[in-house]
Amino acid sequence: MKPEVVTYTLQANGLGTEAYYRDVARFADEVLENAGAEPGIPEIAKYAVKRGMEPEDVRISVLEFLMIGVFWRSYGKFAAPLSLRAASRWLPRLYAWKSKGPRARWTVDLLKGCLNTAQLRVKRSAELGIHVRGFGKLIRWLQASGEFGPECRRLAVWLAFLRSLPASESRNLLLRAIRFAGWFERRSRCELGKYTPEVDAFIKARRNALRWKENLMFCTRGRVEYHLNMVGAELMNRAYRERFLRTKKRKMLLPICMRLKGEAACKAVRMDEGWVCQGCAKDCQVNRISAMGRETGFTALMIPHASTAFDRRNAADVPGEIGIIGVACILNLISGGYRAKELGFEPQCVLLNYAGCVKHWHPEGIATSIDLNQLQRILQDSP
């Protein structure tokens, strides 16, 4: 049966996902080629080395350069009139309290919903100034939203780099990032737009219902951010591939929305790091993936929420020894990759073929799935 398309689907026109993985790989190549002319990208790597940091793969630098421009174009108009210097310091710490228990989660979610509704309702004619101060303000706005923590930590390195440059050079680099994002938005609509056919309609239909809800900002992110995460996942998989293949142990993190049965009927057993499938439904893809893991040497765990998977208590004892295969819907891909790296894991990701969780996308929930052939390709022992 053809799955319902809520926002996106990797099975455009009712076909399989092979075309998607070819298209996103080809478009990622085009993005890298066009980014080759941007002078700030190799310079950021040199700056990181001077600061005693591990230099990132150039493909990650390209992703972050693109991210700057996309966020500026998407959220600059909201960040311009707001003063968030104090809020950006304490709100991320408050959001971290969600892991303390149900009552804390409810309280933080309520505050987050109120704040994000207020932030996205601001209508002013002011534009965010294209300079280092404006970039810092944008980062503070993103931090205050509670949706971009890992991305903001990466962009903070770019902010320090820009502050080390003369004002004219930093402004020129920001302008180039914004122009690059404009090109990306136009081209990604052509190359990847067929995989995000219902995003605009979903936002239009649900925006009012999502007011004051903690997932307002997450669920109303535009098509360009879907395309950014698609390309970002491809670039991250390439950049971290060799390190992943050198890992001694591997885990696969599956979202709870993949199970075929509902919460009451699913027989999965809760362990310290997640839920372990007990094989109660032969047709359940979680069951099939768990069996594949037993055959090929990885542990499959169902994770109810990203905060469970990337809790600091689950950090790798020895950085680089554990490989993580993360499965997620599109808007979680970049942040999930960064979180895995922060905890000492070497990540690869597989996209959910479509969105369907009851928390964000569908009132009853739809059992989601992945392309098992793509998973096999990730597990192959060659870059």
Rank of each mutant, 00 (worst) to 15 (best):
L111S: 08
F78Q: 04
R124S: 15
F135Y: 06
K112S: 13
G69Q: 03
F135C: 01
D109P: 00
S61H: 13
L94F: 13
A118I: 12
R121D: 12
C114H: 08
S125M: 11
A96V: 01
G76F: 05
A104H: 10
R85F: 10
E64M: 09
F78M: 03
E64Y: 13
S88W: 04
S61K: 13
A80R: 07
R121M: 11
R85G: 08
L63E: 05
K98W: 04
N116P: 02
R121T: 03
W90D: 08
C114L: 15
R105T: 10
R105P: 00
L84R: 05
G129T: 11
R73F: 08
A80F: 00
S83P: 08
S88H: 02
V108K: 01
G69P: 07
L84F: 03
I68R: 04
A87W: 11
V108A: 09
S99A: 13
D109K: 14
R73M: 04
S83I: 04
Y95M: 09
L110T: 14
F78K: 10
K123G: 10
A86M: 09
L84G: 03
F78N: 06
S74N: 05
L110C: 10
L91V: 09
W72V: 03
Y75L: 12
V108I: 15
V122C: 11
Q119S: 07
L94P: 11
L94R: 07
P102N: 07
L111A: 13
A87C: 11
Y95W: 14
G134S: 05
L82P: 00
